[in-house]
Nucleic acid binder design. Structure first.
Length: 198
DNA sequence: CCATTAAATGGCC
DNA sequence: GGCCATTTAATGG
């Protein structure tokens, strides 16, 4: 967990339940709360001018949702959409600021978390501007596997659909499917029961 | 069973 | 690699 649940609750956080397809916040709306995932998965997305979805991130338990907006005066650049039944902690912006003022260590942890996310955004951008589809896809797989405790080959069951991989890399589903099959031939990954193991 | 959704394939540019 | 059409597989009432 980024911030201990008890601490958040002591500053007035509430527990909120969400269901698949629920929108936690819309692109263009004004940030008013700090959100932290207790359980479930949330995606941050954006639709380009052609209606094609770009997935900026898929967030899991313990992580905060777009907290960076609480440090500036801008509207959300993405939508936050619930992927599976989720439980979130929600704390108002003023209470969040009060909590940071009173807890130096929390402030430091937030800094660290923000830095890591920014770092990975750079890596992802580097991969996603490659002209090679396999580089883009392996970039996403490496990123997600880096959070796994088990690092041996084929040990990571990729929790993403082909379509989600496509939306994260700017590729088309068919390209993702074909590239993945080719990567399997090259022994870079395995496909068992349609699931990807990396 | 059927409906829905994801995955896979093949043809064409 | 994208786009389109079609088929196949998996999932959940």
């Amino acid at each position: 967990m980024l911030i201990e649940q008890e601490l958040l609750l002591s500053f007035g956080a509430t527990i909120e339940n969400f269901y698949p397809a629920d929108i936690i916040f819309d692109e263009g709306s004004t940030p008013k709360y700090y959100y932290q995932i207790v359980k479930g998965r949330i995606k941050l997305n954006h639709y380009n001018e052609n209606g094609k979805e770009l997935i900026l991130a898929i967030l899991t338990s313990g992580l905060s949702v777009c907290e960076l907006l609480l440090f500036m005066d801008k509207t959300y650049p993405v939508n936050a959409v619930v992927l599976e039944p989720s439980t979130l902690l929600r704390l108002s912006k003023v209470d969040f600021e009060r909590m940071l003022d009173e807890n130096v260590m929390i402030s430091r942890n937030i800094n660290k978390f923000l830095s890591e996310r920014l770092y990975h955004k750079i890596i992802m951008l580097e991969n996603n501007t490659s002209t090679h589809a396999d580089v883009r896809i392996l970039g996403v797989l490496n990123y997600h596997k880096s959070f796994s405790s088990e690092q041996s080959k084929y040990s990571f069951e990729v929790p993403l659909t082909r379509q989600q991989l496509a939306s994260m890399t700017g590729l088309r589903v068919e390209t993702v499917i074909r590239t993945i099959k080719n990567l399997e031939k090259l022994s870079k990954l395995q496909i068992r029961d349609r699931k990807i193991y990396y």
